[in-house]
């Protein structure tokens, strides 16, 4: 696949920018390996999701306007985060004067996995990653963007991340007992409902541990930051990688 003409605006969530630059780098390098022309607009900040989910969507007009102006001229916008992409699509307040641009952004912003499978039509990857991998489905990616079928619904099972990972040589895709239960991060929920958030995170980690997962991956670093925070505090030995890191490392 060689897409030289479309210009991709790389949207790196604020906490990824600050805490997980390696995920940003992996995303950029991966897209470049597929021949994409990628730019990272330097003026980008936060999409406003933490404020909106806390009940202050009305106070995010400034951040949303800034985002739209910064990204409106790209052919596609890609981010290594289902949660932030869902926020831009569903929870931006209406920005007066930019309605048309806002609608266009809604239609051209993609989470990394779905950009690879649906836009670049990647269906067979050659690469090697000889590990037992457990996938944490972020709820916003899973049920918000429909990156995978949800266990509650009666539909043909699919999982876009799995379709990318399972072709890697040596990779063992681990099926969990609860395939798509929330990890308990939930943005401000992680601090306002601290006890529940921790319990949910531990339960997710236990599920991965019971299935002897070596590397826990996912498409959202926020979930992983939470799970990794617990695992590191409790001395659990599972490793954490963003999906982009696995793909970028496996594909040469």
């Amino acid at each position: 696949m060689n897409l030289t003409s479309p210009h991709i605006g790389l949207f790196i969530p604020c906490y990824v920018d600050q805490f997980y630059p390696k995920v940003g780098i992996a995303t950029l390098e991966l897209l470049e390996k597929f021949g994409c022309q990628v730019s990272f607009p330097l003026g980008q900040t936060c999409c406003g999701q933490p404020m909106a989910n806390a009940g202050y969507e009305r106070d995010t007009v400034g951040t949303a306007r800034h985002f739209i102006e910064l990204f409106k001229d790209f052919d596609y916008i890609v981010a290594p985060s289902g949660s932030c992409v869902l926020h831009v699509k569903e929870h931006f307040p209406v920005i007066s004067g930019l309605e048309k641009e806002q609608q266009e952004i809604h239609d051209k912003i993609f989470e990394l996995t779905e950009f690879l499978t649906d836009i670049l039509n990647v269906n067979h990857l050659s690469g090697r990653f000889p590990h037992k991998v457990g996938y944490h489905a972020s709820c916003h990616g899973q049920r918000g963007l429909r990156l995978a079928s949800s266990s509650e619904m009666n539909s043909t099972p699919f999982n876009k991340a799995k379709s990318l990972l399972e072709n890697l040589e040596g990779l063992e895709w681990i099926t969990l007992s609860r395939t798509d239960e929330c990890c308990g991060f939930g943005g401000t929920f992680s601090v306002t409902e601290e006890a529940l958030s921790l319990r949910m995170g531990r339960d997710r980690l236990d599920d991965h541990a019971q299935h002897e997962v070596e590397i826990l991956t996912g498409g959202d670093m926020s979930c992983i930051m939470h799970l990794q925070g617990i695992a590191s505090r409790e001395g659990r030995n599972v490793k954490f990688m963003h999906l982009a890191e696995i793909l970028n490392q496996a594909i040469q």
């Binding site: 997980y20 630059p21 390696k22 330097l42």
Partner: peptide, 25 residues
């Protein structure tokens, strides 16, 4: 700080992605 009661914070990298991008791209 309720985050830190049961969770560690991520390790702090030396530079942000943006810093890296500016140096490398």
């Amino acid at each position: 700080n309720s985050w830190g009661k049961g969770r560690n914070l991520p390790e702090t990298p030396n530079e942000s992605f943006k810093d890296w991008y500016q140096r490398n791209r």
